[in-house]
């Protein structure tokens, strides 16, 4: 369950930025989670609810932006949707995709007062 240590890291980032902005409450946290990021979205949601307790973000709404996996075949150069890093190219069958999108695990923005 590495999601919890990641969630705690996210809250640290959020609190640092909130304090810098002299905010007294965090209303909302926007997080980008890629399909190929290696975290489970459900576990992430649960972890964030626990991690925010006792912080400026205690009552913050968490908005997840789920980013679909996209890859490009290193052999034939065509782009396609990637559910797993080992999906074969649907055009030429090669197991050689370069991940173009979907590895994201980022704190995008916060809304504070």
């Amino acid at each position: 369950m590495h999601e919890f240590s990641i969630a705690i890291g996210i809250i640290e980032i959020v609190n640092q930025h909130a304090e810098k902005a002299e905010a007294h409450i965090v209303n909302e946290i926007e997080i980008e989670v890629g399909e190929l990021s290696g975290v489970v979205l459900d576990a992430m949601e649960f972890a964030m609810e626990s991690a925010k307790k006792g912080t400026l973000a205690e009552n913050a709404g968490i908005v997840f932006h789920y980013i679909k996996g996209r890859g490009q075949c290193r052999d034939c150069g065509k782009a396609f949707d990637l559910q797993n890093v080992f999906d074969p190219c649907p055009f030429c069958g090669a197991f050689n995709p370069e991940v173009k999108q979907g590895k994201e695990l980022r704190v995008k923005a916060i809304n504070v007062d």
Binding site: I6, I13, V107, N111, D113
Partner: peptide
């Protein structure tokens, strides 16, 4: 929840764009 107010958001929006594992 402030963010659930329909139509507009209260508060200030701060862009962060930082990797969670940064």
């Amino acid at each position: 929840h402030h963010n659930e107010t329909a139509g507009h958001k209260h508060g200030r929006q701060i862009s962060i764009e930082e990797d969670a594992l940064h």
